[in-house]
Design a protein around this nucleic acid. Structure first.
Lengths: 145, 145
DNA sequence: CTAATGTCTCTAGCAACTATAGGTTCAAGG
DNA sequence: CCTTGAACCTATAGTTGCTAGAGACATTAG
């Protein structure tokens, strides 16, 4: 049995985060020692490692909740799990597209800076006047990427 | 003079967001009509458009606060503004790199799904066992991208 | 004049944690 | 055996950048 600190270091998840996951029901309530400290089994470690791995891949906690409940019922068809993963892939691809556009625009802006004073700084100017940016003026909603 | 609704539609910023920007001091307190409704000048519209544009480019509100105060002092050298923009570019580039790695890993995971049951679903399996993912096992902290 | 729409303030909520305060328990050294 | 310090406990509040709701006042079109 592991203490919460050991569990944290062996999964790379911070201690308050583990408690947070328990609080929102992503991890089951841990067993407790005589002195009321949380104790974790190997199974709990695996579950947390699963969560960590999925977080590293950008899945939301909601998606992870679904994936966990799927992994608890091994006889179900895996189409649902597959759909969640595909949705995440689409999300990542869409963010990539938006960020790529963003990068181009920022590069254009930064390259034009001649190093003078604010009065004729391209950065400030471009931000202030939308029509000064790249060829296509439709870059709204590029963020949340 | 524009009402807050007109200002919102002409800048593409939602009304509660405008009030929120005023609340956090990003926009100055608006003038008021006899009936206590906010009224905005052309100058206020320009300032909000600046904010909107910078948000579209992914700048944080803190960075925008700095950019705005820079743009209010046109005689300062523009190095500071340039530095903010360059930092944002670096940030975007770093997110792009992480998202690209993420995408590759998700693709690998999804492609291997044979459509069977959860028990032998690659998605669940890979998430559960870190060593099953791509050649290099160091993809932690790919997110917040 | 009335009804519909727009605006006002204030509060609370979202994701996914992180930080702080003030207290308890545990493991190791003297 | 006792003390010290690290690790643990609970509970609450803060972070970013908004968004949503309630309940009341203002403005405008017909």
């Amino acid at each position: 049995m592991l203490t919460i600190g050991k569990l944290g270091t062996s999964t790379g998840v911070k201690v308050p985060t583990i408690r947070y996951y328990e609080q929102i029901g992503l991890l089951p309530e841990a067993e407790r020692s005589a002195g009321n400290q949380r104790l974790y089994s190997r199974k709990a470690l695996e579950r947390l490692a699963f969560i960590r791995h999925a977080r590293d891949l950008g899945f939301t906690l909601e998606a992870i909740r679904d994936l966990l409940s799927l992994s608890d019922s091994p006889d179900q068809p895996c189409a649902a799990a597959d759909a969640i993963a595909r949705a995440q892939l689409l999300e990542v691809e869409s963010r990539l597209a938006r960020l790529t556009a963003l990068k181009a625009e920022l590069e254009r802006m930064v390259e034009q800076c001649a190093g003078g004073s604010i009065a004729d700084c391209r950065v400030i100017e471009v931000l202030g006047d939308h029509s000064l940016c790249g060829s296509d003026h439709r870059h709204a909603e590029l963020i949340q990427a």
